[in-house]
Computed example of a mutant assay.
Amino acid sequence: MTPDDPQELLKVELVQLRSEHRRLDAQIEEHVAVGLGSLEVQRLKKRKLALKDRITRIEDELYPDIIA
Rank of each mutant, 00 (worst) to 15 (best):
E61H: 07
D5M: 08
T2Q: 09
Q16V: 12
E61L: 10
L24C: 10
L39E: 14
D60G: 06
T2N: 12
I58W: 00
D53Q: 11
S38R: 10
L51G: 02
L62E: 07
L24P: 08
Q7R: 15
T2R: 10
D65V: 12
D5H: 12
R18K: 15
L14S: 05
R18A: 05
R23K: 15
R18E: 13
L51A: 04
L62N: 12
L9G: 07
Y63I: 05
R23G: 08
I58Y: 00
P6D: 10
R22W: 03
E20G: 10
G37W: 00
Q7K: 15
T2E: 12
I66Q: 14
E29T: 04
H21R: 14
I28Q: 05
T2G: 14
G37D: 15
S38Y: 09
Q27L: 13
P64S: 02
L49S: 13
E13S: 13
H31S: 12
K45N: 05
S19C: 08
P3N: 10
V12H: 07
E59K: 11
R43G: 08
D60P: 01
P6A: 14
K45Y: 01
E29V: 08
Q42A: 15
L51H: 01
L10G: 02
L14E: 01
D5P: 04
L10I: 04
G37M: 03
K46T: 14
R18S: 09
I66G: 06
R57T: 12
I28E: 03
R47C: 01
L36Y: 09
E40L: 13
K46L: 08
K46H: 07
Q7H: 04
S38F: 07
V32S: 09
D4W: 02
P6G: 08
I55V: 13
T56P: 02
V15K: 11
E29F: 01
L51D: 01
I66E: 12
H21K: 14
V15N: 11
D60L: 04
R23I: 13
R43T: 15
L14I: 03
K48M: 10
R47L: 05
L51T: 04
L14F: 03
V34D: 11
Q27N: 09
M1L: 11
